[in-house]
Design a protein around this nucleic acid. Structure first.
Lengths: 150, 150
DNA sequence: TTTTTTTCCGACTAAACCAGACAGAAAAGG
DNA sequence: CCTTTTCTGTCTGGTTTAGTCGGAAAAAAA
């Protein structure tokens, strides 16, 4: 149950873009050097983030990538979903899952648990913004009370 | 960020053992048939669970596996840790991780987030017992308030 | 004592997934 | 033009997953 390097790299890149927000595009090469991410791999991730609508790109000299919205309007969940796909602990909990693909979906005792836990995790990720992450003010969001859970 | 089939199978097996608790050992073959888990694979998982001290085994005819403690004294976290290893979203957050294996561990912005989230996840898993899972009374534990988080 | 039933153990394998590299096409600016 | 950048698809080596398989060891039953 581990976050892959896509998620880590993606978050690093997004964090860099958040820091440079409002100061023009940042090229993949620059991000790659500053965050120590393999350049060719990073381009793949930035492509995913663009297709997910979380960054926009500018081609040609002086081009690069920018956040598609303000840093406070992009959550960690947005980034993770962009590069890693849907946040779900079980395949049968993904939105695209067809119920007939699993024969014993409804008498699966643990399903309810994983569903709840996945939502809880996703909720936490969606509560933390890129602004908070990049400004290293994580204490703010980590102390914010959870939404009701009963 | 997905639970592997080890975790699912392990939980199914543990749940079956919880249901049969107090009624003697249950063989791997029986569990495999009742829970629809590949028998040879299940044995591997039961071995891990035994080494982790969460089940005990009895050899020979009439033998099988039993829970090492009462169902209400075994958490889902115990099972998941037994079959999947430490619950950590990043490798560098595992207990066995040596700090010198990572060059930029301390200026890694997202580390604090993943640490917190992993602990939160583990905490939830440790609050749910096999008794609750097997009796399908998940509503009890899922409504239990979270421990303080600030 | 032999057979049967079970766990125990290590090794093996096919398929999937991960973490990238690579070659080139397409924009855009100078 | 030429350079700089993104864009796109493809390829690959390594690791992990999800198992299988063959047999050893223990214990009960015959």
């Amino acid at each position: 149950m581990r976050l892959s390097s896509r998620g880590r790299y993606g978050l690093q890149a997004a964090c860099e873009l958040a820091l440079q927000h409002g100061m023009g595009p940042v090229s993949a090469r620059v991000i790659s050097e500053r965050r120590n991410v393999p350049p060719a791999y990073l381009e793949q991730l930035l492509r995913k983030m663009r297709l997910a609508g979380v960054v926009v790109s500018v081609r040609g000299p002086g081009g690069g990538y920018l956040l598609a919205r303000q840093p406070e309007q992009i959550s960690l969940g947005d980034i993770v979903r962009a590069v890693e796909g849907p946040i779900a602990l079980l395949e049968c909990l993904e939105p695209s899952f067809a119920p007939d693909e699993c024969d014993n979906m409804f008498d699966c005792v643990a399903r309810a648990v994983w569903k709840r836990l996945g939502k809880e995790l996703e909720g936490m990720l969606d509560e933390i913004t890129l602004k908070e992450l990049s400004e290293d003010r994580l204490d703010i969001c980590l102390c914010r009370p959870t939404r009701g859970r009963g």
